[in-house]
Amino acid sequence: MKNIKSKLAISIVFLFSSLFFSCQENENPNSISQGEMIVEFDNYVGNQNMVIDEVGSTNYRYSTANGQEFNLTRFGYYISHVRLEGPNGEVFIDEMNASADANQIKGYYRVVQGESDTYNIHLKNIPEGQYNKIIFNLGVKEDGIQEGAVGGILDRAAGAWFWNWNSGFINYIIEGHSPASLRDENRLQIHIGGWKNIPSADENPQRFFDNNVEVSLPFDATVRVSETMRPSPHIIMDLLKVIGDTDLAIQNNIHSPAAAVPFVQKLAEAFVVDHTHQ
């Protein structure tokens, strides 16, 4: 009997303590100061600012290295798994969460040319310290797909770039028109996606391709994050680094992981940190 009573007493203590603690927001347990960073993305085509034209436009603003003209009617990319590193071993890993609830999605970002509110990625809860490098994944990895239906910028019904026939997101999307393309409406569509590798076990070739790309960019200077200092690295992305050498007469209709591989190899080089605002 005594044993039961003591069990009960312990249980009640646990009950109240767990009720008390389990639902509390548990912020800054060690009260380490935290700060923020705003990473700005600025898309270019060579040395020209990137401009999005109406679908059907024949105003060809840009041209490839071999003189094929083109314009853009849609352009953008997903960014995830952002990480910051500092000269003294500082590391910040942006929290990731894929959820049906758009408000619970964490760590996924999408830059959509023409929608200026998407150009700045707002990183929060960064431990105070010095940072001189940003690393991010260009695209959406398996952890954003195999959890099932997700919301917000990953919701196909809300305009997410998602393949319905070969499940996965388009990591990097290029759409426009080029007179070099002999498709209807001189259409140009380069959809870069793919999130898994099935390496060949025998003489067979590889099945699928993981076309996520890790982009690692040193800052031009070390910056300091603190409660009062919110630095802002300015990243420039140049589309010509990706398709500048492409023959748009041939490569104008890319819609699968294997077909995207030649472009993927150039993606990491398209990004550079131009300068950093402390």
């Binding site: 195999q146 998602f162 319905n164 026939w165 070969n166």
Partner: peptide, 28 residues
């Protein structure tokens, strides 16, 4: 086997031109 999660299966049938021919966006 192109669809890799049950959640995504209806999208293909809804958007297929030879099936329901409706954008998922418009359906929602």
């Amino acid at each position: 086997g192109g669809v890799t999660h049950l959640d995504f299966a209806p999208i293909l049938a809804i958007e297929s031109e030879i099936e329901m021919d409706e954008s998922f966006e418009n359906l929602v």
